[in-house]
């Protein structure tokens, strides 16, 4: 009897999980190279799961494959929001191995990285097409946000009717200009933060819960 009860309980737990209204949403972290996407993904993952997502680096295109961290449970105001985080390679229209040479990487390795980065961008664009339920778009707030890549990606995200949060990252740096990003995408909520320092992460989590919960 006890066995049957236990089995029934466990089945009901499984079905509850399967058909729960709060199935994890798959949230893609997108943005240009070196905006701090992996730093943010790691910050979120570490804050709520204790693990990291991938290595961070100053070298552009360090993330050359989309990396996923599943079932990240974010607690806000007494309730829990569960999301899968997908850290994607930085999206760009040009990849040149010479960029890597400046970072003390030999030519053969640079060419390989370049090829992998290109594949990564293709993959990221493909994920955007059908594999994400929402987007966190990360921008380096010290850089000019008015670029073809940003405009195109935000346009695609809007055409997909995906919920999107725009994060103005690197507020710890001197040239950070949040207003510039707000002006570039006035139709979306812009949240300033420093993923590296962990500044303003509370607001980021509030907004993640509100947008993707």
């Amino acid at each position: 009897m006890g066995l049957l009860t236990g089995l029934r309980d466990s089945i009901s737990r499984v079905t509850e999980r399967l058909f729960s209204a709060s199935d994890p949403k798959r949230i893609g972290i997108y943005g240009p190279p070196n905006a701090g996407k992996t730093t943010l993904a790691n910050r979120i993952a570490r804050d709520w799961t204790g693990d990291a997502v991938g290595p961070e680096s100053h070298v552009p295109h360090e993330t050359r494959r989309a990396r996923r961290k599943e079932n990240v449970e974010i607690e806000r105001n007494g309730s829990t929001v569960t999301i899968d985080i997908v850290d994607t390679p930085g999206v760009t229209t040009k990849v040149d191995y010479k960029e890597f040479l400046e970072h003390d990487i030999d030519e053969e390795d640079a060419v390989r990285r370049s090829r992998e980065a290109t594949e990564g961008v293709a993959e990221a664009m493909h994920w955007l097409r059908e594999d994400v339920d929402g987007v966190i778009y990360v921008l380096d707030s010290t850089e000019d946000p008015f670029t073809q890549v940003n405009t195109m990606l935000i346009g695609i995200i809007e055409s997909q009717d995906l919920p999107v949060l725009i994060l103005a990252n690197k507020t710890d740096l001197e040239g950070s200009n949040i207003k510039q990003i707000e002006n570039a995408f006035p139709q979306h909520q812009t949240i300033p933060l420093s993923a590296l320092e962990g500044d303003n992460m509370d607001e980021v989590y509030d907004m993640i819960a509100e947008y993707f919960g």
């Binding site: 229209t93 010479k98 030519e107 090829r115 290109t118 961008v121 293709a122 493909h126 890549v149």
Partner: peptide, 13 residues
């Protein structure tokens, strides 16, 4: 080899 130009819309489509 090592230098690529990407058409994002085409990759997306």
């Amino acid at each position: 080899p090592g230098q690529y130009e990407l058409n994002l819309m085409e990759l997306y489509d």
